[in-house]
Computed example of a mutant assay.
Amino acid sequence: MSTATGSCLCGAIRYRVDGPLRPVVACHCSQCRKTTGHHVAATSAPADCVTIEGEPRWYRSSDSAERGFCPTCGSNLFWRRPGHLSIWAGTLDTHPDDLKLASHIFCADKGRYYEIADGLPQAAQDDPALALATRPG
Protein backbone atom coordinates (compact mmCIF):
# COMPACT_ATOMS: atom_id res chain seq x y z
CA MET A 1 0.00 0.00 0.00
CA SER A 2 1.27 3.46 -0.84
CA THR A 3 1.47 6.27 1.69
CA ALA A 4 1.70 10.00 1.03
CA THR A 5 2.12 12.84 3.51
CA GLY A 6 1.66 16.57 3.38
CA SER A 7 1.17 19.73 5.37
CA CYS A 8 0.33 23.40 5.41
CA LEU A 9 3.09 26.03 5.15
CA CYS A 10 3.64 26.38 8.91
CA GLY A 11 3.23 22.66 9.73
CA ALA A 12 0.32 23.11 12.15
CA ILE A 13 -1.80 20.84 9.91
CA ARG A 14 -0.28 17.57 8.69
CA TYR A 15 -1.96 14.70 6.89
CA ARG A 16 -1.26 11.14 5.77
CA VAL A 17 -2.96 9.28 2.93
CA ASP A 18 -2.88 5.49 3.15
CA GLY A 19 -3.64 4.19 -0.32
CA PRO A 20 -3.46 5.42 -3.89
CA LEU A 21 -4.03 9.03 -4.91
CA ARG A 22 -6.26 9.96 -7.84
CA PRO A 23 -4.52 11.65 -10.78
CA VAL A 24 -4.42 15.43 -10.43
CA VAL A 25 -7.34 17.45 -11.80
CA ALA A 26 -7.10 21.21 -12.33
CA CYS A 27 -10.29 23.01 -11.31
CA HIS A 28 -10.81 26.47 -12.74
CA CYS A 29 -14.15 27.27 -11.02
CA SER A 30 -14.64 30.71 -9.50
CA GLN A 31 -14.53 29.36 -5.92
CA CYS A 32 -11.16 27.69 -6.46
CA ARG A 33 -9.83 30.84 -8.13
CA LYS A 34 -10.97 33.04 -5.26
CA THR A 35 -9.67 30.79 -2.46
CA THR A 36 -6.23 30.27 -4.03
CA GLY A 37 -5.68 33.21 -6.36
CA HIS A 38 -5.51 30.92 -9.41
CA HIS A 39 -6.82 27.46 -10.31
CA VAL A 40 -6.50 24.43 -8.04
CA ALA A 41 -4.53 21.30 -8.86
CA ALA A 42 -5.93 18.58 -6.64
CA THR A 43 -5.59 14.88 -6.13
CA SER A 44 -8.02 12.99 -3.91
CA ALA A 45 -8.61 9.93 -1.77
CA PRO A 46 -11.51 8.38 0.11
CA ALA A 47 -11.92 10.32 3.36
CA ASP A 48 -11.42 7.20 5.48
CA CYS A 49 -7.92 6.77 3.96
CA VAL A 50 -6.77 10.21 5.17
CA THR A 51 -5.56 11.00 8.68
CA ILE A 52 -5.37 14.70 9.57
CA GLU A 53 -3.26 15.94 12.49
CA GLY A 54 -4.06 19.41 13.79
CA GLU A 55 -7.30 21.34 13.48
CA PRO A 56 -8.03 22.72 10.03
CA ARG A 57 -10.74 25.33 9.80
CA TRP A 58 -13.61 24.31 7.51
CA TYR A 59 -15.57 26.76 5.38
CA ARG A 60 -18.91 25.61 3.95
CA SER A 61 -18.56 26.78 0.34
CA SER A 62 -21.74 25.10 -0.97
CA ASP A 63 -24.67 23.00 0.17
CA SER A 64 -22.63 19.84 -0.33
CA ALA A 65 -18.97 20.72 0.29
CA GLU A 66 -16.47 22.41 2.59
CA ARG A 67 -12.97 23.80 2.06
CA GLY A 68 -10.27 23.19 4.65
CA PHE A 69 -7.42 25.54 5.45
CA CYS A 70 -4.88 26.19 8.20
CA PRO A 71 -6.15 28.81 10.66
CA THR A 72 -2.53 29.81 11.47
CA CYS A 73 -0.84 30.30 8.08
CA GLY A 74 -3.93 30.32 5.83
CA SER A 75 -2.76 27.51 3.53
CA ASN A 76 -5.58 26.00 1.48
CA LEU A 77 -5.40 22.22 1.84
CA PHE A 78 -8.66 20.37 1.21
CA TRP A 79 -12.08 20.24 -0.35
CA ARG A 80 -14.48 17.70 1.13
CA ARG A 81 -17.91 16.25 0.78
CA PRO A 82 -19.20 13.17 2.61
CA GLY A 83 -16.84 10.25 2.02
CA HIS A 84 -14.44 12.19 -0.20
CA LEU A 85 -11.45 14.45 0.36
CA SER A 86 -9.64 16.37 -2.37
CA ILE A 87 -6.10 17.35 -1.46
CA TRP A 88 -4.25 20.28 -3.01
CA ALA A 89 -1.38 18.55 -4.81
CA GLY A 90 1.10 21.30 -3.94
CA THR A 91 0.72 20.52 -0.23
CA LEU A 92 2.17 17.01 -0.59
CA ASP A 93 5.63 16.58 0.96
CA THR A 94 6.83 14.60 -2.06
CA HIS A 95 5.15 13.82 -5.35
CA PRO A 96 5.00 10.19 -6.45
CA ASP A 97 6.43 9.72 -9.95
CA ASP A 98 3.09 8.40 -11.19
CA LEU A 99 1.05 11.39 -9.90
CA LYS A 100 0.34 13.51 -12.98
CA LEU A 101 -2.07 16.22 -14.09
CA ALA A 102 -4.81 14.40 -16.02
CA SER A 103 -7.52 16.94 -16.93
CA HIS A 104 -9.14 20.34 -16.41
CA ILE A 105 -12.68 21.05 -15.20
CA PHE A 106 -14.82 24.21 -14.99
CA CYS A 107 -12.81 25.72 -17.85
CA ALA A 108 -15.70 28.07 -18.72
CA ASP A 109 -14.99 29.84 -15.40
CA LYS A 110 -11.22 30.17 -15.84
CA GLY A 111 -9.49 33.52 -15.57
CA ARG A 112 -9.13 35.40 -18.84
CA TYR A 113 -5.47 36.16 -18.15
CA TYR A 114 -4.21 32.65 -19.06
CA GLU A 115 -4.69 29.87 -21.58
CA ILE A 116 -4.80 26.13 -21.00
CA ALA A 117 -2.38 24.82 -23.58
CA ASP A 118 -1.12 21.50 -22.21
CA GLY A 119 -3.29 19.36 -24.50
CA LEU A 120 -5.05 17.56 -21.64
CA PRO A 121 -8.83 16.97 -21.72
CA GLN A 122 -10.97 19.97 -20.75
CA ALA A 123 -14.58 20.32 -19.63
CA ALA A 124 -16.57 23.56 -19.59
CA GLN A 125 -18.15 22.58 -16.27
CA ASP A 126 -17.85 19.47 -14.14
CA ASP A 127 -17.29 16.25 -16.05
CA PRO A 128 -17.11 13.11 -13.90
CA ALA A 129 -15.41 11.22 -16.74
CA LEU A 130 -12.57 13.78 -16.83
CA ALA A 131 -12.42 14.17 -13.07
CA LEU A 132 -12.55 10.39 -12.61
CA ALA A 133 -15.84 10.60 -10.70
CA THR A 134 -14.54 13.25 -8.28
CA ARG A 135 -13.77 16.93 -8.44
CA PRO A 136 -11.93 19.45 -6.30
CA GLY A 137 -14.06 22.52 -6.89
Rank of each mutant, 00 (worst) to 15 (best):
G119A: 06
Q125E: 12
I87S: 00
C29V: 00
E66Q: 05
R16L: 09
F106W: 12
Q122V: 12
E66K: 06
V24S: 10
I87W: 02
A65D: 08
T51M: 01
Y15G: 01
A133E: 15
T35Q: 14
H95M: 15
R67V: 06
T5Q: 08
R14S: 05
D93Q: 08
I52Y: 03
C73P: 10
I116Y: 13
D97H: 15
P121I: 01
R22C: 03
D48L: 02
T43C: 07
R16A: 09
K110S: 09
S62G: 01
G111F: 04
R135S: 08
M1W: 02
S44C: 12
I116S: 08
G74C: 06
P23H: 09
A102W: 14
A124Q: 14
A12T: 12
V40F: 02
G37F: 09
T51K: 00
C70R: 06
G54K: 00
I87N: 00
Q122P: 11
H39T: 03
R14M: 03
D118S: 10
I13P: 12
G54V: 05
A123R: 11
C70T: 08
D126W: 07
D118M: 12
T36D: 06
R135L: 05
Y114A: 05
A123I: 08
P121E: 05
G83W: 04
P136Q: 09
A131D: 06
V17N: 00
A131G: 15
G6C: 12
C70E: 03
R60K: 13
L21W: 02
P46F: 03
I87P: 04
C70H: 06
